[in-house]
Amino acid sequence: MTALDIVEEDPRWAALDLETLAESALITTLKHLNLDPDVSEITILACDDARIADLNADFRGKPTPTNVLSWPADERGAAQDGGLPLTVTADFDGMLELGDIAISYDTCAKEARAAGKSMTDHVTHLIIHGTLHLLGYDHDRDADATLMEGIEVEILGKLGLDDPYREDAVQ
């Protein structure tokens, strides 16, 4: 089982059973990428729009709410557009310290409603998305975005969830 630490700052998250949801998303993501969930460490901050807007301002210079933010433990991004990120290596105690994710209840709920999907399905997607960022995947460059989105779709499919990037999907 993944070493998962969840800090629920916003009590609305309790209704989702975020721990079970996050664990399923993380385990599926890590196994899909041939990483051992049993030695992986991730922290998730489950917050609201006010908190994530502060974090977004502090770390990205964007003082607005967003759905999810990620802070990888190590820089693993690919040098070449569309290339694979650097391999995750274990630290001195054999653990894969991946990093931290913050996720906003308010923005997730708004996006889920707008897309006509359940909050559970949308949050699952965003945890997968955030985890891929921790592993060095990104979507700033076109080929990187294509690679990352393709992996997200594969993982979501393993969980029985629809492709959020298909042409007829509501965004």
Rank of each mutant, 00 (worst) to 15 (best):
M148K: 08
L35R: 04
D38G: 10
L147I: 01
G130L: 05
A145P: 02
L147K: 13
D162L: 11
S70W: 12
A22S: 05
I155D: 09
D144H: 01
F92G: 11
K62R: 15
E19G: 06
G116I: 03
D142Q: 09
L135V: 07
D49A: 02
P164C: 11
T20C: 12
L30E: 02
R51P: 05
I151N: 08
E9P: 09
T2K: 13
A90L: 08
D38M: 02
L126V: 15
T89K: 10
G116D: 04
P164W: 13
T20Q: 15
P37S: 01
T43D: 05
L18Q: 01
I127R: 04
S24D: 13
E19R: 13
L161N: 08
A73K: 10
D17T: 06
L96V: 02
G94M: 04
Q80K: 15
H133P: 00
L33D: 00
M1P: 11
A114I: 12
L96F: 05
L45T: 03
T2H: 14
A143P: 05
P164K: 15
D100Q: 15
T107M: 12
A115H: 04
T146C: 11
A22Q: 05
D100H: 14
K117A: 13
D121G: 07
L134I: 09
V68C: 10
A145C: 09
A57W: 03
D38E: 10
H122E: 07
I44W: 02
P72T: 13
N34D: 06
L55Y: 03
A14N: 14
F59C: 04
T28A: 13
L156R: 14
L132R: 09
D163N: 15
D138Y: 06
G130V: 01
R60M: 10
T29G: 07
F59N: 14
D144G: 01
K158D: 10
T20N: 10
V170L: 15
D168H: 12
A143L: 08
L16F: 15
D10R: 11
E111M: 05
A78S: 09
V39S: 05
A15H: 12
I155K: 09
G136K: 10
P164L: 10
E154R: 11
E41P: 03
